[in-house]
């Protein structure tokens, strides 16, 4: 066990139970949004979680923060399982773990000034007096690159990128150690996206932050992350350093995902051999048997539909490179 893990997620599960009927509600199956996933995040690193819609990546973030109660598993923060924490202890831990949301329009209350929004965490946790809070808010506005004089403005007076800066300031105000970033830049334009990504890397260095960076855009995740986990239908299918994941993907889904992202380089695109995954992502209500990817997998064999592959380490050089595939590393190009 390495000791520098800030967060360890162990066998986390979140099932949503569907009910039908009006008076006599009966169970109509469950959605296994997150189904037995485990990963570790080292202090000071950026851990990327990537996958398509419905793979359970956002649910994972919410389950870690207990915004939705996980069905089973452990979330170990600095050695303690926060899922077993009573109310009061959980309240205290919220200072240390913050979250940044995807939609800079929906994540800020439209009736509050940005000063109120950023100082709210201090109010909730009873930190400092009015004067101190105002000073701190102004300082943070400066840190995230906004004009401190705009403290009394409302969110709608700002552009998308500026709003996301406000969201970042709110996440920073309590000096957290870990920030869960749920698609923080996917709603932004390219040029603004780069501003926010740079801001986040700068802040990470300055305040020694650890990020769990969730996104569907593989190139963004690769740019910011040290290690990346790829999710498919509630499962983690591959974990590796961001270089290894791009250069030597082991899982056929990762290969398909990498291949699907067009690279902004016309000559390169002409030469590149792409493999287009066929079919749609199946419904998480009734996921395929065995390996959940097998109906779309170009190299699936009989075993794949019968048995579920384990997430195993395939690396020989000591660095971890996990994959959940019976044929890990086999090329999917025919």
């Amino acid at each position: 066990m390495d000791n520098n893990n800030l967060l360890e997620v162990k066998n986390l599960k979140k099932y949503f139970y569907l009910r039908s009927g009006f008076f006599f509600q009966k169970s109509a199956g469950s959605v296994k949004a997150v189904d037995d996933i485990s990963f570790k995040i080292k202090e000071g690193e950026t851990f990327g979680l990537v996958g398509e819609s419905g793979c359970g990546k956002s649910t994972t973030a919410r389950a870690i923060l207990r915004l939705i109660e996980p069905t089973d598993g452990q979330v170990i923060y600095e050695g303690e399982d926060i899922l077993s924490f009573p109310r009061k202890k959980m309240f205290d831990i919220r200072k240390k773990i913050q979250i940044i949301f995807q939609d800079p329009y929906a994540s800020l209350s439209p009736r509050m000034t940005i000063g109120d929004i950023i100082s709210e965490p201090m109010e909730i946790h009873n930190i400092g007096d009015k004067k101190y809070r105002e000073k701190r808010v102004k300082k943070l506005l400066e840190i995230v690159g906004l004009n401190p004089e705009h403290i009394n403005r409302y969110p709608h007076e700002f552009s998308g990128g500026q709003r996301q800066r406000i969201g970042v300031a709110r996440a920073l105000v309590l000096n957290p150690k870990l920030i869960l970033c749920d698609e923080p830049v996917s709603a932004l334009d390219v040029s603004v996206q780069a501003q926010i990504l740079n801001l986040m890397t700068d802040l990470q260095k300055e305040f020694n932050l650890t990020y769990l960076f969730i996104a569907h855009d593989l190139s963004v995740v690769k740019h910011v992350s040290n290690n990346i986990a790829v999710m498919y239908l509630g499962k983690i299918v591959e974990v590796a350093s961001s270089e290894a994941l791009y250069e030597n993907p082991l899982h056929p889904y990762t290969m398909g995902l990498l291949s699907a992202v067009p690279i902004p380089d016309p000559e390169l695109e002409k030469k590149r051999k792409r493999i287009i995954l066929t079919g749609d992502v199946p419904s998480p209500i009734d996921p395929p048997s065995g390996c959940r990817f097998h109906p779309r997998c170009p190299i699936a064999k009989e075993i794949c539909s019968k048995q579920e592959p384990e997430l195993k380490n395939y690396s020989e050089d000591g660095k971890k490179h996990l994959s959940a595939c019976f044929f890990a590393g086999k090329s999917i190009v025919k």
């Binding site: 915004l67 309240f91 913050q98 979250i99 929906a106 209350s109 909730i124 946790h125």
Partner: peptide, 13 residues
């Protein structure tokens, strides 16, 4: 179900 309500809950409000 807006995100800013979730944000407040995440802060422990």
């Amino acid at each position: 179900n807006k995100e800013y309500i979730e944000a407040a809950r995440a802060l422990g409000a």
